[in-house]
Every structure is written in C-alpha cells, then in structure tokens.
C-alpha cells in the first residue's frame, strides 16, 4: 500500500528526496507500530517544507528517519544525489553532517556541563576543520548570525540562558558546519509567544544568509504557514495533502486539512464560533490498528464505502496541488 509519489518533483531538482519511507517501532508483545507508512517527500534547494500534523501522526519520526536516527525500516533518503540508506560508516557520517537538526527543547538539547563556546565549536573539532583561529572566527560568525555576542556568552553554560537564547545556541551549533539542510523539529513550541517570533525571524535570516533549505516540523499551523513555501499535512503516518503554503491555507482540499484549520483558535473575537460544534469530532485511531482504506475515514464527514476499501493516493488536483482523498 502506498499513497504515491505523484507530488515529487524531478529527481535532479531536489536537494532531498525521500521515497517510500517506512518507520516502525516495537510496541511490545511482538507487535510493531508503523509510525510512518510509506511516505515520500522532497525539498528543493532554498525551499522550506513545512510538515504539520497532530501528535502521534509520525512527523517527528519522519524527520529523524531522514537523518537515519534511527534508520528507517525501508525507503530511500536521497540527499545531494546520494542515497543515505545505502551508505555506511565514515561515508555516511561525512554526507550526513550537511544535514543538521534543531530540536524542540532547547535546554535539554545542550550539554549542561559544557561551556557554550565549546558546544558550538566542537562539531568543527570533531571534523578537524581549520585551526583554533579559523574555528574561533567561524564561531564568532555563527554567534553573530543568531544574535549573540560571542565574547559575552562563550564562557557561560546553558543554564545561564533563557529558553529562547538556548534555541539560538542550538541554531548556532547547527550552522557551524555549513549545512545545506536544517531539520527543525518543533523549534519554537517550547518558547513563549513573544520569543517565538524572534526565533522564526532568525531562522528566515539564517536561511537566506547561509543558503539553506529547511524541513520545518510543527503542530502550530500559523507558525508553519509563516516559514513554509510548501506544506505537507500528515495524519496517522500518511500524507493527506501537499501544496504550496498559500494555496493550502486559502483553500484546503483534504477534509482533514480543513478540520485542522477550522480548529485553530484565531486571535480575532469576530471569528469565534459562538455555539458551534467542534471542527472535528472523535479521536485519533490507534496506530497499532489503523483503519482500512483511508486512515481518516473514521472521522471524515465525506467518507463513503469506497474510503473503507480503497486507499486514496496523492493525486494532482490543480498544478502543484496534491491530495490523497477520493472526494476532494
């Protein structure tokens, strides 16, 4: 079973092309749970792909499998023309360092016992890049790019910084090896709203300055729209819809995308649904026993008999617009 690859662009164009990715985890008593079920996506140079979905949809597992942490059960991850899943040892490490990750909890993703300057220069030491002078110069450059003063912060430890500042340090650490692709897994969801905007602006600036592509995984639809060129919506290990950000938000085609957008609390009292019903009823089905056919059908207002027997594939409904639904 597959939801298809119709939404992928030409292999030569993409910086990253992930095909038929399957991620499984043991679920006890000999069972396995499929967190990601045959998902394909690609990212062009300079593009930001946003991945949205609710918790348990497999978006984080997908992000992590892209850097083979842990490796996917099956599927290929083609980065700069090479399939990472076919590489081993030194060659894998060398290729993979051009992809860096930023995590949700900025404080726990920094070693509390190390000085911030060392945390950021260590990747260069591991890769034997340049001498102490070059490393210090590069560290200065990335600290400046994330809005921190190297001389003031290098000697201090993570606990001396706020969550927002720790996220800046994580971004500096990710940038220091000159990556092409950043995978950001909920990078602002642990931050206060007033700080969140600083980090989102910073990621946009870093992307332009260092020529990066981004995979931006988040549950907050407003945040994803703000940073993304293209958005993929996930539900229970599958893609529902892939579209340019503007189009997806203006006219969601998949019933799940529509429900998600309707459920977002909008900071505008005029938009409030006074006594209305919730946008989406029911509960997430168990990923151990996903529904047959379309996985969203158990909660879908449009579901018919066909949805239970035949899994919809992603197909192009308008140029650049792909939806996995029989009724879209």
């Amino acid at each position: 079973m597959t939801t298809g690859t119709a939404h992928l662009r030409a292999p030569g164009e993409a910086l990253l092309r992930v095909e038929h990715l399957v991620v499984t985890f043991p679920a006890g008593r000999g069972r396995t749970v499929q967190a990601v079920s045959d998902v394909s996506f690609d990212v062009l140079p300079g593009e930001t792909l946003g991945i949205v979905g609710e918790s348990g949809c497999g978006k984080s597992s997908m992000g992590r499998a892209t850097v083979l942490m842990p490796p996917p059960r099956s599927g290929s991850v083609i980065f700069e023309g090479r399939d990472l899943t076919a590489l081993h040892g030194e060659e894998l490490r060398r290729t993979r360092r051009r992809i860096q990750m930023i995590f949700q909890d900025p404080i726990s993703s920094l070693n509390p016992r190390r000085r911030v300057g060392d945390i950021v220069t260590e990747p260069m030491a591991i890769w034997n890049k340049g001498g102490p002078k070059e490393r210090a110069a590069r560290a200065r450059e990335v600290f400046e790019a994330v809005g921190l003063d190297y001389d003031a912060v290098a000697g201090r430890r993570p606990h001396e910084f706020s969550g927002g500042q720790c996220q800046r340090i994580s971004i500096a650490r990710a940038l220091v090896l000159d990556p092409k692709l950043l995978i950001c897994d909920e990078p602002v969801s642990a931050l206060d709203v007033s700080v969140q905007a600083q980090i989102l602006n910073l990621l946009e600036d870093a992307k332009a300055r260092f020529g990066l592509s981004l995979v931006f995984i988040a549950h907050d639809l407003g945040v994803v729209k703000n940073v993304s060129d293209r958005v993929a919506v996930m539900y229970l290990g599958r893609l529902c819809e892939v579209a340019p950000a503007e189009d997806l938000y203006r006219a969601p085609a998949h019933p799940y995308t529509r429900a998600l957008l309707d459920a977002v609390p909008v900071p505008d009292p005029a938009a409030r649904p006074a006594e209305s019903d919730p946008a989406l009823g029911g509960e997430f089905p168990s990923p151990l026993a996903p529904p047959s056919g379309c996985r969203f059908r158990t909660r879908c207002p449009l579901a018919t008999g066909r949805c239970a027997t035949e899994e919809p594939r992603l197909h192009e409904v308008r140029p650049g617009r792909h939806v996995a639904c029989h009724h879209a």
């Binding site: 709203v193 007033s194 639809l221 407003g222 703000n226």
Partner: peptide, 10 residues
C-alpha cells in the same frame, strides 16, 4: 508577534 493564518508565508 503572532504568526497569523491570514498573512502570506514569510
């Protein structure tokens, strides 16, 4: 400071 659903990307 909040990203709005009505604003265009970026």
């Amino acid at each position: 400071s909040i990203p709005k659903l009505s604003d265009p990307p970026h």
